[in-house]
Design a protein around this nucleic acid. Structure first.
Lengths: 253, 253
DNA sequence: TCTTGACCTTCACGCTGCGTAAACGTTTAG
DNA sequence: CTAAACGTTTACGCAGCGTGAAGGTCAAGA
């Protein structure tokens, strides 16, 4: 099945302008351009657009979406399962807001008093969830994936080739850390290469990557004793150095 | 209870910048400014902010929110009941998307084939809901409110003063229509005054106003036989004229 | 064959809802 | 008395498109 831009727009519910924009920023390129310059989309692009829209539904920025789905180790099934969870959370949040609306109605109709902080229950959760839960629980989960039961993860949904590639990357990260750390400058070319490799390494087990989560994990490399010990035993001050390099890499304050 | 800007920000979960912006565009002015120029918010503003955030949750533009809550006939309880419904719809939509995610997982894991249009179920509904349901079912409901059981509506949640004021406005609309229609120019000053009055009249029974819904209703004034008959019997071509005037008023193509 | 209308293209400017930084005054706690 | 925390205005920046304008392409009917 091949689609011109408006056909795909109609199928998916977005506008043609949106598809052109996605092409422009490199998020979704058409399968080919025909002799008159028309964009032609194939089945692969349809599936890709579906994934994009799922991420967009979860308010992931287009830049991050591009980074996620273009990464070589991208596991679409794992991502879908993650979507499901996130959508459930969104639903729960909406239900909380609905409860707040109901309470507010009751307070207006029957004069039941309402505390000021009750008035924003559910509405506030966005901030809280985005920070604490996204960079708390999730990273803690990733922590588990990477260290404690890394062997478990590999067995679950990674091909043997990917697994060896990931291990190789992990070793590269460590050796790069040793080299770069002696210079002492986390902004150096070598240190930034280190941060890049670290990101690549993460992508193998992270269903979605974001700068914020990356920086959040880096923060934990110093604050969590177990992490700190792991990187510090490789080279003195390794954890701090890696964190600072990642902060610069991700553009964190 | 009085709040400085950061206190209110913390209470409600928005940033201080957001509150300043809302002040700037006239959406939410502080109760007063103290001697050092600080913004001081009171209990009224807290409630107002809550309403604003409910509307924002439903993706209503800030401009429209301002128009809605500043309108004299604004019935906050009716609005809250409307929010509840809309939030339920949002939840339903999320559940549809979750079902689509599940289907996609199944098609990937167990090779169950999936039609291309199935892949966007739920994701598309946004457009459809915004158009058909918002300007279809809702307007149809308003139709009922205004014509068939207008007497019922008044008894439910309108004060007698408001009701008489609304009726007076309704008569003004009709007489203005007669006057303006003879000129034949829906862009004339008189015709635009007519459209403005018509909007005011609507506001009495609409929990929320938007240009799009107004234009959608105008469309129906011509396409729906019963509406057309009502306005045409007042003056020949009245329905078309009113529609065109409203289209110009709302800036519809 | 010609034309009409639907569809495609590339600029390019505009909009909303803030984030973010700069430069500066005010209040409060130690 | 001073530093930190909090407040102010001004102003530029950004994502994710909407919305023309100005023009090429294609299918169908006259």
């Amino acid at each position: 099945m091949e689609y011109t831009i408006n056909k795909l727009a109609q199928l998916s519910g977005v506008t043609a302008r949106t598809l052109r924009y996605y092409d422009q920023i490199g998020l979704l390129k058409p399968a080919r351009i025909n002799s008159s310059g028309y964009r032609i989309y194939g089945p692969k692009e349809v599936d890709s657009l579906q994934h994009i829209l799922f991420y967009r539904e979860l308010e992931v920025s287009l830049e991050d979406i591009a980074a996620i789905i273009n990464e070589p180790g991208f596991d679409s099934t794992a991502a879908l399962k993650n979507h499901y969870k996130k959508l459930q959370q969104k639903c729960t949040r909406l239900e909380k807001i609905m409860a707040t609306v109901e309470k507010t109605i009751a307070s207006q109709e029957r004069g039941i008093p309402m505390q000021n902080n009750e008035k924003f229950e559910g509405l506030k959760e966005k901030m809280i969830e985005e920070n604490e839960q996204k960079y708390g629980a999730e990273i803690r989960k990733q922590y588990g994936d990477h260290t404690i039961d890394a062997s478990n993860t590999k067995l679950r949904n990674m091909s043997p080739e990917d697994y060896t590639a990931m291990n190789k990357l992990g070793e590269e990260v460590l050796s790069l850390l040793k080299e770069a750390c002696t210079d002492g400058d986390p902004g150096s070319v070598k240190a930034q290469e280190l941060a890049g490799k670290h990101r690549e390494w993460l992508m193998y087990s992270w269903p979605d990557y974001s700068k914020e989560a990356h920086a959040g994990l880096a923060e934990m490399y110093v604050s969590d004793e177990r992490f700190k010990a792991y990187y510090d035993k490789e080279v003195k001050g390794g954890a701090e150095f890696l964190r600072d390099a990642i902060f610069i890499y991700t553009g964190t304050k």
